[in-house]
Amino acid sequence: MREQDFALREFFGERRQELISHIPHAVELGMTVEKAGPCQALLRIPQGARLLGAASRGVVFGGVITTLLDQVGGTAVMCSQRELTSIATIDMRIDYMRPSTPGRDLLGHAQCYRLTRNVAFVKSRAFHEGEIDDPFAISLSTYMLASNPATPGVVKALEASYRVKRS
C-alpha cells in the first residue's frame, strides 16, 4: 500500500496530535503523538504523581501502561486503514518485564502487523526515551473494525472528529 492510500495520511506529519485530541482520557493524561505513519504510532505519557502504583516507590501503576498500549495500538490501527471505520479493542495481553523507571516519561510504540476485513492485529511495547530495544512492557492486542456498522453516520462522525478533509 502506498502512503497516499491511508485514510489518515494527512495526520502522519505535523497534525499528528489530532489523532488523539478527540479522546478525553488521552487528553486528560497529557498524551502526545510523537510519531504517526503507515500502520504505526508512537505516543508519550508525561510522568505524573497521580499515575503511581505506590507513592513511596515512584513506579507507575501497571494499569497506566495498559491505557498507553491500548491507545497507541488503536492509533496504529486507525493509521492502517484505507477506509476509515470505527474500531473497538477485542482483547489485549500485557507482559510486565520490569517496573518502569521512576521520574521518566512513558513511551508506547505500536505496529499493526495484520489488517483483515474485520480484525486488526497489533504488537506494542512500552519503554523510556532512547530505550526502544529494552522495553519494560510488551503487548499483543486485537481490534475489531467497523465496530458500530449499524450506527448511521459513524464514519461521518469519525471524519468530523479527525477533521479529515475530503477533496
Binding site: 479522546i23 494499569g63 459513524v154
Partner: peptide, 24 residues
C-alpha cells in the same frame, strides 16, 4: 467520570481504564 472516556461519541470508558480497573 467524563475524563475517563475513550470514545466521546458513545460515550464509553477508555479501554485502558477498564483494564486498569480489572488489574486493581
Amino acid at each position: 467520570r467524563q475524563d475517563l472516556v475513550g470514545n466521546a461519541g458513545l460515550p464509553a470508558l477508555h479501554g485502558g481504564v477498564v483494564g486498569a480497573f480489572l488489574e486493581l
